[in-house]
Amino acid sequence: MDIKLKIWRQSGPKQAGFYEDHRVVADPHMSFLEMLDVLNEQLLEAGKDAVAFDHDCREGICGACSMVINGNPHGPRAGTTACQLHMREYHDGDEIVIEPWRAAAFPIIKDLVVDRSAFDRIQHAGGYVSVGTGSAPDANTIPIGKRESDEAFDYAACIGCGACVAACPNASAMLFVSSKVAHLSLLPQGKVERKVRVRKMVAAMDAEGFGGCTNHGECSAACPKSISVDAIALLNREYMFAGLARD
């Protein structure tokens, strides 16, 4: 299949970016990133600079890949990262526009590569249980109901990709932060520090320059792990509770 590509090129954080047109012959069994590999191979063999994009696991779990495909972060398929997308979603002659995540808190480094270190800093602020190595009780000491544990898991499945931010008209990081808060505050091990955690993480999120949440719900629709917006409601409850109660 013959595919037309319009790809965002930007040589550095301060340089102006632009769209560049390319054509590539793809096989329907290829992954989307393999299609980009083929393009890059063509560019390199022609002695040109290839398109930089983040990727690593190529199986939808590391959260590295990050590109907006025809307006959708990670492309058209629900619950799917860009690296898991396959060319069988497309037809001969299709035009595909590829851009980086766009958000003030995720500055562009080069082409499709952005700086997501803000996510790490939010987690430094409190995304953990304060337990040192060696001081844990036997793992079966505290039973946790399967339902509770499964619910916490649904939020723990976040891969930290940032698609939620890229999808949000306000570039809000609420879905990411709330999934982290929800995962820990639903488990007995995380409950002890829940108030401090939510306050610190929300403060860190605000300090990074992410926008506010105005309930568009685009985040959850774009999320490759289909994290539910219920996480945001849970965060809001936790936050209120943390504000009202005294430590």
Binding site: V131, A136, P137, A139, I144, G145, S149, L184
Partner: peptide, 15 residues
């Protein structure tokens, strides 16, 4: 150690 950190390992109905 992992359970204490909040790793959500699979559980039985009894917890």
């Amino acid at each position: 150690q992992c359970v204490a950190q909040g790793v959500p390992f699979a559980r039985e109905y009894g917890g």
